[in-house]
Design a protein around this nucleic acid. Sequence first.
DNA 1: CATCGTTGTTCCAACGTTGTAAAGACTGGG
DNA 2: CCCAGTCTTTACAACGTTGGAACAACGATG
Lengths: 328, 328
Amino acid sequence: MATLKDVARLAGVSVKTVSNVVNGYSFVKPDNRRRVEEALEATGYRPNLGARNLRRGRTGFIALVLPELSIPYFAELAGLVIAAAQDHEWNVLIEQTFGTLAGERSALASLGPHLVDAAILSPEALQVDDFQLPVPAVLLGEHAVDVPISRVGIDNVAAAQAAVRHLISLGHQRIAAIGAHPHRGTAALRLEGYRRALAEASLPFVDELVVPALNYHRADGAAAMRSLLDLRTPPDAVFCFNDLLAIGAMRAAGERFVRVPQDLAVVGFDNNEESVYSSPSLTSVAPDKAAIAQAAVALLHRRVESGDALENVETPFSLQVRESTVAR
Amino acid sequence: MATLKDVARLAGVSVKTVSNVVNGYSFVKPDNRRRVEEALEATGYRPNLGARNLRRGRTGFIALVLPELSIPYFAELAGLVIAAAQDHEWNVLIEQTFGTLAGERSALASLGPHLVDAAILSPEALQVDDFQLPVPAVLLGEHAVDVPISRVGIDNVAAAQAAVRHLISLGHQRIAAIGAHPHRGTAALRLEGYRRALAEASLPFVDELVVPALNYHRADGAAAMRSLLDLRTPPDAVFCFNDLLAIGAMRAAGERFVRVPQDLAVVGFDNNEESVYSSPSLTSVAPDKAAIAQAAVALLHRRVESGDALENVETPFSLQVRESTVAR
DNA sequence: CATCGTTGTTCCAACGTTGTAAAGACTGGG
DNA sequence: CCCAGTCTTTACAACGTTGGAACAACGATG
């Protein structure tokens, strides 16, 4: 692998002059510039990023800390973050926490200024004490605890409210919610949106219709749905806090021969690609994931470059209505 | 951030002694070792990986080049590769190619010995000329072209054959295949398995029942299925070359009120988590993804450490029978 | 012609780490 | 008490890069 030294020798100039050409420094004689460029071409020089970053005190990487890549929402988001990071000449390092406190702590511990320039976090269990981060960070989702960190995300209350309003507008009266969670910030906000939508339609808030889910996997949605169907009076609609829960819920409904949407309307959250092709397809709250990814990366870039202050960016969302609430 | 120098000053020893302690060199006096360890603890020292790797001539990273993280198979695989890489103290850099030749070329071009120590590739369109890799690499899947690179994967012919045999054993006679592809190595092998299963049961190979798919997304499966249902005599079973195609196919069948599995049996390939919860759930060939990830990383590690020769690792697979071929 | 400012180039040091070689400290045997 | 050998520590250089200072060449100005 060619180094600056090799190029310099070939071009007959000093190492620094080559460095100047590579970095676009203006004052290089046309003649030298040409010779250097030819030598760069001939040697196929590529800068050694490790050395450059050692010198510059930057690493060229950002971390993306998320629960699990096998969760479609995070997989899609990761893809978009990688794409967005490229625009800022950043490479992305993905750390999986598996949604556990230990996993999140160890992911954070492995982060250091020598490894990444900044971090994008999707924590689920972190405590206040854990947020002594060595690098600028941005939170995707919500603050579970009150901590001074930038955040990018949608208005979860409004989004949940829109979803439940949709169910109400279809005439549903007994609407369940799946996904309540003791520590998750988003869960609390979505529950609040659910509560508000019920209230504005003067529908009662019924405790037994709110089912918690510890993980947000398909199996949890199925289990929650089964418990709802076991109620003396099962719900006629259900709002799930993510699409996986909804997919699981629809599956459980099918197993009991409960028809969706005729007997039970279902709304999800995240708008996974999977939900477009499920049978029935799933009505879902669709956050603009590309906007989230771009906003997060751009925010960190500003932060690292110019030490900008904390920010709270709100990204748009929409409600995608499909067969799980309105039959074809 | 503390450096070796800081620790050395605090412990009253030379930088190198600290380095020796950090790297587990044996001959350090117990007394000094203790003092150094205390100083390490006190300063919270973390080695600067950039500097270490610059010195060692390694980067500590491997690249994982794949089409798209939003494809569940690759997302799951990526998660497993990250986990496997951790065991070898490697961080994983994910590059998305979006299945295009240009994307794959640019991903490969961005790879260099200064960026990654090795690479795991899932190419779809690469030509022979492109395989002038600057680092050791391993191919996941199949050689589309004859090129001397290590490979990890399942026996695609046998796996496809098992899937089609299963359909034949259920009494199906007119079995379609979705996913033929002009350049993809796996596609050719799966088609061969399909062909062999038909042959050994003395079933005819019918051209119109083999439908190509350029991408392997859900939409392509749906489109292919529609064309099959438009045939004068539609198939009574279909073998899809991945689960996404199968999900799309089931969706298209549902839209035409073709019942799965009563009117049409469907088998997929990859065994995505999604397929367990679809309605009906999907029978699928299940490669051992964890084994693939671990084998690929371990192989590269051997290669980098001791310059081992090329290898061809075959990982196990199984057939997961679900509702799309056998009604509950 | 001396001075100055501008432009262009080079040299040196440093980023934090580790391999090498050499120096220093200790041990036991003669 | 010296020497050889073993154990322990240190100084130095180097990995490839870039910022800054120093220097050189140049034309313009007074």
